[in-house]
Structure formats: structure tokens, C-alpha cells
Design a protein around this nucleic acid. Structure first.
Length: 581
RNA sequence: CGGGGUGUAGCGCAGCUUGGUAGCGCGCAGCGUUCGGGACGCUGAGGUCGUGGGUUCAAAUCCCGCCACCCCGACCA
């Protein structure tokens, strides 16, 4: 390809709106162009890379026995209604109607479609297991697109759906895990594999493949001694007893000044570490019930864990002042001990009839003689509890681990958790019977002739995001540095000058390298050398060859790798070897 | 959805306070001089000033509505 014929241009100036390197570089180098927020044009250069990534993914999926299909992008809305995802999806479902008023969801993920396709056939146990996948545009009405291709509203995703028996599933899951590891390795992204939350997809467990990056939005923890790796949403820690040697003291309700409300205030007033404080955090669910989580003062409630463990996925929101008023309390004075304590006040403050669900975090068991959680806010008589001991002074029926992990904590496997940030480039989900239970006829015939439900999994890779993750990992101040296997071209051939001999030599070299089956981007523009070199670096093509009056007179070619700082003169034979190596 | 900000030529911006013929740099086109890390001179093209309404003799500028985009948060691939 000649640069003079290539659609898309590099830009010398950087925009000011780019917060993320890959966004700026891909735009500046002419790989992508923004349409509206979160929707991008892929230009010829960008598409070439995109295609190469797809090819690698396809190769490994096929090798793992998965079979490619294409599903419609418009999903009949009834399918989504069958699984209640029209109301409960995490992403805002995009819907459209045709002229007959038939409603469709713009596909954001395709579990229902896959099941619907499969149930159109008479599947027997002899057909199992199988795994079908596709590359298709996914639509998600993101609240806020961000970071170029990192978080968009339309993107090509490879999504696979496996069907089989429960016994067969483990092997399929492992197969996909291995395929993913191979894919990301081939792309130069040695992704961390972390346990994560299934969220709206459903199922009981899943793993995310995360490319470590400062620009990533996923926060996760790794225990480097044991290998335990988990997304912050699910990371489990062992909390050790803080003061097990301390004798239990008598509970006291003591007067405190009105300014003492937050944990920080209490630390100041009682002159004790926040680990000894007892904190209550209130949420409201979609029914309007109030969920009060009582937890150690130094910990944060992990809402994802809480939702998962209460089976209220996607339903919890932080309680408002109004919600708190409904149970007779207010911010800073949510009572840890439970409903009974609230009753006397209820008549005065209650505004609506709602359930109060108390959850005690396991961390409460790690402290003796804690402070707080028994606040009274009657004016002039503000008070707090001291020497509070969970189990003795109060206890809740629901005891869960819902604390957010923090760096330095002990992982559930015993090592120390290190915090990392990264870009989630792929995920594998165990779905189990989630969809088979919700959708009719998601069944096959077993060896005894009985109908059985499918045990499913699903597996996704965002192609554009992966592309961006590669750029995040491989770039310098001058531009992108593509790994050779996905570079849009292998060679950037820069012709310096417009001398007849130079043109002839460069044209010939272009032909000769192309004849080797190597993709060349031939910079045949009549521009100055500096511009060509700058573009070569910006575009990130692995090899750079220069033809100029100097090289022509010497009968040699100038060669440099994108990652080299110095170039060298090479004969054609040597150059050939360097380029085909 | 809450808070903050921005919309003027392909890109980056000035002009708006104090209403009066729409500007600058880069880029683009032509000519010339140049030619090894983003040259220089001259000439030129290119803008419904996001959009709808209002005030006014007159609106990029003042007022109201709407839309889009960016950042933080919330939410979540």
C-alpha cells in the first residue's frame, strides 16, 4: 500500500481531549476516528489490526473445537423477557421497533439468542458438548463512554456459548481458559486471570482476563505467594482478630457531643483507631426495603458481594436520607443493633412501611470492646455505645463477608494481597442452569430418553478493547509499537527525495518486498524526511527501510526496527533475512 | 442521573465582559526556494459561530429552551 493512496491521515498535533494514550495515538496515527461519544469509525489501518486480532482469536477458538456462526443483531424482545433481562440487565438495553411495531433489543450479549438457536434443533446427548461463537457488533448504552476504544457503546465482540452436561462443563471451561491464555499471550498481553462477579450475566462463577494497565478500570488483587487472584468485587480476605487478648468490658451508653457523627469524628473523640469503631451502612433495594450492613469502621462495604450474597444483584442503592427517615433514623445515627431498638421511635419518624434487613459483616467478630453503632440523636442527649461486643450486645441472623478487600490484607489463601489495575479484555462465565431454567425447551434428550437441561457457559472477548490494550502496553513517546503479528504492515518503506534513481530503487524495493509476501506501507509522498520518520514511529510498524540518494549510490538499504534507536546499512540479501526473520 | 466545563474552518484556539462586515496558528490547494527527525516565502480555498426561539435598527457576543461533547461521581463492560 502506498501512503499516497491510503485513506486516513496522521496528525502532527495532539488533541486536548485525550486522557488515555491509546485513544490519542490511535486517533493521531489515523487508525480510528470518533463519530459520537463511544462510537468509532475504524479506518483502514485500524481495521487491518482489528482483523488480525480477530484472526488470532478465531484460530484459537477453532482449535478449541468451537464453531463459528453469525447471529442476528436484532434480538426479539420476547427472548429477553423470557429471562427477565428487559428489567434487570446491568447495561441499559437498547431497543428498536420495526414498522410493524415488533420490538427488538439491539444485541449487547447473546445468551438468549444462543439458547433460542439451539432449541430449534432436536439435540441429543450424543451431540454434546458443543460451543458456538460469533464475532458481532454489540450495543451497550453505556452511561459514560471513556478512553477511546476502552469503553464504547458499540464494539465487535467475540462471544461464545457452550452447551453440555454438568459433568462435561469443567473441561469446556478449562479449554476456553487455555484458549484465552494462548490468545492473549500471542497478542503480547500476558493477561492476569482473576475470579470475578457474574453480575447480570448470571451463573455462579467467572474469570476475567485483565491486561495490567494504569488506564484500566478494573481493580483487582493478586496474592503473589499463592497465586490467588480476584477482582475487587469478589476478593475474599481473612480478617484476623484485632485484640483477642482484651477482656470483655461492660457495655456503656455514653454521652458524646453532637459533632461526633462520622467514623473520623469518633476516632478523634475517643482517640482510638477506626478498626474499633462499628459502622452501619444502609442500602435500599428495589422493593424499598432497607438493608443495614454493620461492619468494622476501617472497612468499606463491597456492594457487589452484598448483592450477590443477598441475591439482590443490581438491586441495591445507597439509602437516601428519606429512606433512613422511614426507619426512624438518619445519616450518622443508623443503629447497629437492629429493628427492636428502633421501634419506639418508629411512630415518630416512620414514613413508609418497609422491612429492615440487618447484615453483620464477619469483621465484627474480630474486635472486642468496640465503639459505636448505638447512637442516639435525641437533641442534647446524643450518645454512643462503648465496649460493644458483637454476639453479646447484639447479633444478627445474617452474617456475611461483605467487606471490600484492601491492599496488604491477608488473602483467603494466606498470602498478602497486592492491588492492581487493568483492562478487562476477556471473560469466561459459568452459567450453569441459569438460562436453561429461565428459558423453555432449553433441553436435550439423555441416554435414557429423558429431557435434561443444558449446563452452559459463555465466553467473551472485546476486540476493540483488546486492540487498545495492546497499544496501552506497547507504545512510547513517539507512537505505537505494534507486535509484529498484528501490525497493520510489517515494513514502513520511506523514500527520501524525488530523484529519478531513488524513485526507481524504492519502487523496485517495494515490489521485491511485497513479492516475499510481506506487507509494506510505502511512503511515496513528496514530503521531507522528518515527517516520514515521525510518521513511521507514530504508526508503529515493526521494520523501517529507507531508500535515498545515499543508499542508492551505495547499492544498500537502510534498516531500522521500530524499537531500535540506530539504523544500519544492509544489502538486499541481509535485508531480506531481517524482514523474514 | 448528580456536580463541573466546553461547543467559532479538518485540528488547536482567540473574539463574547462593553452587540456594529468572523480572526489567528497548524493542516489543505497552487507556485517557487528547499530536502536525513515534522523547512521557508508568496498566493488561495475553506465557517448555517451546536441548535431553536427571544430582545434589538443590528446578535458569535445579551436572555430562555434544547442538543452534543469532555471531566468527576453514580452505574457498568
Amino acid at each position: 500500500m502506498r501512503v499516497t493512496q491510503l485513506f486516513g491521515k496522521t496528525s502532527k498535533t495532539e488533541g486536548t481531549d485525550y486522557q488515555v494514550p491509546s485513544h490519542r495515538l490511535l486517533t493521531q496515527a489515523g487508525f480510528i476516528r470518533e463519530s459520537t461519544a463511544g462510537r468509532y469509525y475504524l479506518l483502514p489501518l485500524g481495521l487491518k489490526v482489528h482483523d488480525k486480532i480477530i484472526e488470532i482469536v478465531r484460530k484459537h477458538m477453532n482449535a478449541a473445537g468451537a464453531q463459528e456462526v453469525v447471529m442476528p443483531v436484532l434480538h426479539p424482545l420476547e427472548l429477553w423477557q423470557e429471562t427477565n433481562r428487559t428489567t434487570t440487565t446491568g447495561f441499559e438495553l437498547m431497543k428498536i421497533k420495526d414498522r410493524r411495531e415488533a420490538e427488538f433489543a439491539l444485541g449487547g450479549t447473546a445468551e438468549e439468542m444462543a439458547v433460542d438457536l439451539v432449541r430449534k434443533f432436536n439435540i441429543s446427548y450424543k451431540d454434546l458438548p458443543f460451543n458456538i461463537y460469533q464475532f458481532s457488533m454489540k450495543f451497550r448504552d453505556e452511561l459514560r463512554a471513556r478512553g477511546g476504544l476502552l469503553r464504547v457503546r458499540e464494539f465487535v465482540m467475540k462471544d461464545a456459548y457452550s452447551f453440555g452436561t454438568e459433568e462435561q462443563f469443567k473441561a469446556v471451561y478449562q479449554q476456553m481458559w487455555d484458549a484465552y491464555a494462548a490468545i492473549f499471550k500471542e497478542l503480547g498481553l500476558d493477561a492476569d486471570v482473576v475470579a470475578a462477579d457474574n453480575g447480570y450475566i448470571g451463573g455462579e462463577y467467572c474469570h476475567e482476563f485483565i491486561s495490567e494497565s494504569d488506564q484500566g478500570e478494573s481493580r483487582y488483587f493478586i496474592d503473589e505467594t499463592t497465586g490467588y487472584a480476584a477482582h475487587e468485587d469478589v476478593a475474599e480476605v481473612i480478617l484476623e482478630a484485632v485484640n483477642p487478648e482484651e477482656a470483655l468490658l461492660d457495655f456503656q451508653q455514653v454521652h458524646v457531643p453532637a459533632w461526633v457523627q462520622k467514623i473520623a469524628d469518633m476516632e478523634k473523640y475517643f482517640k482510638k483507631d477506626k478498626r474499633f469503631m462499628i459502622k452501619s451502612v444502609a442500602y435500599v433495594n428495589s422493593e424499598g426495603d432497607i438493608i443495614v450492613v454493620v461492619i468494622r469502621g476501617d472497612l468499606e462495604v463491597n456492594k457487589t458481594k452484598l448483592e450477590q450474597k443477598l441475591h439482590m444483584v443490581g438491586q441495591l442503592e445507597a439509602a437516601s436520607e428519606e429512606d433512613l427517615a422511614a426507619i426512624g433514623t438518619r445519616t450518622g445515627y443508623v443503629h447497629a443493633a437492629g429493628q427492636t431498638f428502633l421501634k419506639p421511635r418508629k411512630a415518630k419518624y416512620a414514613k413508609r412501611d418497609c422491612k429492615v434487613i440487618y447484615v453483620a459483616d464477619e469483621s465484627l467478630k474480630t474486635i472486642r470492646n468496640g465503639i459505636g453503632g448505638h447512637a442516639s440523636f435525641e437533641e442534647g442527649k446524643e450518645s454512643e455505645g462503648t465496649n460493644v461486643n458483637y454476639g453479646r450486645d447484639f447479633k444478627h441472623d445474617i452474617e456475611l463477608d461483605v467487606a471490600m478487600a484492601q491492599p496488604g490484607m491477608k488473602s483467603k489463601d494466606g498470602g498478602v494481597l497486592v492491588e492492581k489495575k487493568g483492562i478487562e479484555v476477556g471473560n469466561i462465565f459459568q452459567l450453569g442452569y441459569h438460562y436453561s431454567n429461565l428459558m423453555h425447551d432449553a433441553e436435550y434428550t439423555d441416554a435414557t430418553g429423558k429431557r435434561q437441561k443444558y449446563y452452559m457457559g459463555c465466553y467473551g472477548i472485546g476486540i476493540g478493547r483488546t486492540l487498545a490494550a495492546v497499544v496501552e502496553r506497547f507504545h512510547d513517546e513517539k507512537g505505537i509499537i505494534w507486535p509484529a503479528n498484528i501490525a497493520p504492515f510489517q515494513v514502513y518503506l520511506a523514500r527520501l527525495g524525488t530523484d529519478e534513481n531513488v524513485i526507481k530503487a524504492a519502487d523496485e524495493l517495494y515490489e521485491n518486498i511485497t513479492a516475499l509476501g510481506i506487507e509494506v506501507l510505502y511512503d511515496d509522498r513528496d514530503t521531507r524526511p522528518g515527517e516520514k520518520f515521525a510518521d513511521a514511529d507514530l504508526l508503529g510498524i515493526p521494520h523501517r527501510v529507507v531508500v535515498s540518494a545515499k543508499t542508492v549510490s551505495g547499492g544498500m538499504f537502510e534498516y531500522k526496527k521500530r524499537t531500535d534507536s540506530e539504523s544500519s546499512m544492509q544489502t538486499w540479501e541481509n535485508l531480506k533475512n531481517l524482514l523474514t526473520a
